[in-house]
Simulated assay, not measured.
Amino acid sequence: MTALFSTFPRIGAGGAAMRRLAWTACLMAAMTGTASAAAEGTRTKGPAPTDISAVVRAEGVDPARAALLIIRRRDRAEWRSGGDRIGRRFPPASTSKIPHTLIALETGLAGDGETRFEWDGVERALPVWNQDQTLATAFARSAVWVYQRITSRLGRGVMSDWITRFGYGNADVGGENDLTTYWLRGPLAISAREQTVFLEKLIDRTLPLSDRTYDIGRRVIRTESGEGWSLYSKTGWRQDGVNTDIGWYVGWLETANPDTGTNKGMMTGDTYVFAFNMDMPDPAQDVPKRIRAVKAALSRIGALPAP
């Protein structure tokens, strides 16, 4: 810091005020740099990150138009692709069904994963949406109308409070007119990095939720399993008719150690949390790449068996 201060020229007595301002500015710059370095150190704590852009590219995704972050929680090892885009926010689209599911359970709007939501008779794009849904089927089928009914019934104030308490992205649910679209078109937005932060709170059970909500939530969010592993995840597709479509895939993978088995239904090996987003200029071709790219990366790092 002394060397930095020495770059300022000597100023006479009449310029004492100017010199104080210069020193103050310099000190603030030094403090800001230190704070930024500390924040970066916390963010990247663990082994040096490994670039996995080649895996993303091999799945037909341009790494410059996508962001992938995988964290092994045991040692904080990170695998990344996408550079600064990992910190860039986008509307979460249907990945927000993870926090929305937890909110529906905790508030009692959905008693459990089998709570039924009666179809209103309106024909929608996907045939599987055009029927009564449980919370579990609505999550698995990404039935937007069910979650729009949830946010409408709970109201803007309740939704804003919960999203803020979760620290979910920018936590902005907008105004009353945004109540059924804030996660689809904005203003709610979240980065890949912030998705992993939220998911780790869910895994660690440090969100302000009951054990009952955590237990039911895990069952609803669990999407796939195999020998020695379980996957908890959600896709998302932002399409607003103006900007390039954005595809999401976020979640976590729990793997079991063969010698320890399971404990109360939870895997006891490594846990990998991940978040992926990508531009989808050609949705018909790009939509399947969301899951495919993440699974390829998890396989490459040894977290999932080879396809």
Rank of each mutant, 00 (worst) to 15 (best):
residue 85 R to C: 01
residue 181 T to P: 04
residue 190 I to R: 02
residue 121 G to V: 13
residue 73 R to L: 14
residue 142 S to M: 06
residue 80 R to Y: 07
residue 94 S to A: 06
residue 201 K to H: 12
residue 88 R to H: 03
residue 95 T to H: 02
residue 202 L to Y: 08
residue 84 D to R: 13
residue 58 A to W: 07
residue 86 I to C: 03
residue 151 T to Y: 00
residue 79 W to H: 12
residue 119 W to H: 14
residue 168 Y to V: 08
residue 68 L to C: 08
residue 133 Q to F: 10
residue 202 L to T: 02
residue 97 K to D: 06
residue 128 V to G: 02
residue 171 A to M: 01
residue 154 L to R: 09
residue 71 I to S: 09
residue 79 W to V: 05
residue 168 Y to N: 01
residue 181 T to K: 05
residue 165 R to N: 03
residue 105 L to H: 02
residue 169 G to N: 11
residue 70 I to M: 14
residue 127 P to W: 10
residue 142 S to K: 09
residue 131 Q to G: 08
residue 79 W to G: 07
residue 158 V to G: 02
residue 140 A to P: 12
residue 129 W to P: 15
residue 95 T to S: 07
residue 89 R to C: 09
residue 96 S to R: 06
residue 97 K to M: 08
residue 152 S to Q: 14
residue 116 R to A: 14
residue 110 A to C: 11
residue 166 F to W: 02
residue 123 E to I: 14
residue 56 V to H: 09
residue 163 I to C: 00
residue 141 R to W: 06
residue 162 W to T: 06
residue 73 R to F: 07
residue 65 R to N: 12
residue 167 G to F: 00
residue 111 G to T: 12
residue 151 T to R: 01
residue 175 G to R: 03
residue 72 R to L: 10
residue 61 V to S: 10
residue 140 A to R: 15
residue 134 T to S: 15
residue 157 G to I: 06
residue 83 G to P: 02
residue 144 V to T: 15
residue 185 R to V: 12
residue 123 E to D: 13
residue 132 D to C: 14
residue 75 D to W: 11
residue 194 E to K: 11
residue 59 E to F: 02
residue 173 V to P: 05
residue 199 L to S: 01
residue 86 I to D: 07
residue 157 G to H: 14
residue 198 F to N: 07
residue 119 W to N: 10
residue 103 I to T: 06
residue 98 I to K: 01
residue 102 L to R: 00
residue 124 R to N: 12
residue 159 M to L: 15
residue 80 R to M: 13
residue 161 D to Q: 09
residue 169 G to S: 08
residue 99 P to E: 01
residue 127 P to A: 11
residue 177 N to K: 07
residue 138 A to M: 12
residue 104 A to H: 04
residue 144 V to K: 15
residue 155 G to S: 08
residue 154 L to S: 12
residue 200 E to R: 15
residue 153 R to F: 01
residue 86 I to W: 05
residue 90 F to V: 03
residue 59 E to R: 11
residue 74 R to M: 03
residue 87 G to C: 06
residue 177 N to R: 04
residue 184 L to R: 00
residue 138 A to H: 11
residue 59 E to N: 14
residue 197 V to D: 10
residue 146 V to A: 06
residue 200 E to H: 13
residue 178 D to A: 07
residue 111 G to D: 11
residue 137 T to I: 05
residue 129 W to Y: 13
residue 158 V to D: 01
residue 128 V to K: 00
residue 163 I to V: 03
residue 80 R to A: 05
